[in-house]
Simulated scan of single mutants.
Amino acid sequence: MNDMTDGEKGLGENPREIVLRPMAPIVPATNIAGNSLMFVISIMSFLACLTLGAVIMVQDTANSWQSQISREITIQIKPESGMDVDAELAKARDIALSFSGTTGATIVDTAATARLLEPWLGEGLDMEELPVPRLVIITIDETSPPDFAGMRAALDDSVKNAFLDDHRTWVDRLVAMANTTVIIGLCVLALVFIATVLTVIFATRGALSGNHHIVEVLHFVGAEASFVASKFQKHFFMIALKGALAGGLGATIAFAVAGLWANARIATPESDQAMALFGGFSMSAGGYIGALSIVVITAVLTALTTRITVIRTIMEIDLIRSDPTRSI
């Protein structure tokens, strides 16, 4: 009585118990196409994070320029034969300090002037032989700046070859250039996202083509388009998330290496000029938040693109079924 047939043994101790095999996924978990898509998305994410980081860096630098220009002005004195440049510099400094709104004045000595010219003229300059203008840097009160017109008039009357430069003209041009660069960067970022969407559409179409018969059978036996789309959506979401994380991490490492290079070459003329133009090559908190946002946006955008593509493809299948003369 206790003996069981071979068929009953295959069903377990209870002959009526049915052992279900696990259902294979509609989309294979790993394949060559999926790995290629992950690699492409990682590149796109890397470029997007680099672009966003560069945009934030340029914008921060432009804000720094505007902040610095609101705190400092410069008096230039061009030397000439028989002129006591040091005396004229001291006179210009005293005139500037006599105006309300100035908080300090510093005369740039010959050593500092030579160092500023090293990137263009090299080292070992003899400032006595070069008619290089000498500078007086004046710090001003940002909330209550001095009377620049009155200061210019006083310098013209008392100091030889003096020129007051408030830097507004060239800083406005640099800020305009920075804003243009930001706009271009945002356009590049938009193009990267568009390229990512197109890549995902092609990859989804390819996955649907490879599993077309399975999708069609599932749909014809009652599986709704949203159910089939959710399977593809989850698959491509994980691919995009992994690729975007790799790209974002690569961009963060790239900025970290650039920052280390800038710190290693600090106090050199080349580093000073580069940091003056581009900042410290380091990502701020906004840069890290932006990189994380790009990772999330890339993954979500991929999932949404996949879902829409699958649903539209299934709708096309329904149209072909209802009208055989149509073709996808």
Rank of each mutant, 00 (worst) to 15 (best):
S98W: 04
A154F: 09
G150K: 04
I266W: 03
S70K: 10
E118R: 13
E88V: 04
L277A: 09
H235M: 08
L37E: 05
M44R: 01
K160P: 03
N263P: 02
D94F: 06
F202S: 13
F46Y: 11
S144E: 08
L301Q: 05
M177D: 14
I214W: 13
I194V: 07
S70P: 02
G222R: 09
G287S: 09
M83F: 14
F255Y: 10
R168V: 11
I137E: 15
A207N: 01
L164P: 08
G7Q: 02
I266N: 15
D3F: 01
N63K: 12
I26L: 14
R173V: 08
G287E: 04
V132H: 08
T169C: 02
I320G: 00
E80Y: 15
E13G: 03
S322C: 04
S81G: 02
D147S: 10
N14P: 02
A276G: 07
H219A: 08
T298D: 01
I43R: 05
G290Q: 11
S271H: 01
A246G: 01
L135H: 11
L191C: 03
F99C: 05
T306W: 05
S98M: 06
V27L: 01
D86K: 13
S81I: 11
F227H: 09
V215H: 09
G10R: 05
L11I: 00
S230P: 00
P131G: 02
R312V: 06
V108N: 08
T325C: 00
L292Q: 03
D165P: 06
G290M: 04
T102R: 11
A203Q: 11
H212Q: 14
I75D: 03
K242T: 12
V40Y: 04
P119H: 01
V27D: 13
L218F: 15
I43M: 11
G34I: 06
I183S: 14
F39G: 15
K91M: 10
S271G: 12
G53A: 07
T113F: 07
A24R: 12
G53C: 07
G287K: 01
L164E: 10
L277N: 13
L20F: 15
I328A: 07
T196A: 15
L319Q: 02
G206T: 10
P15A: 10
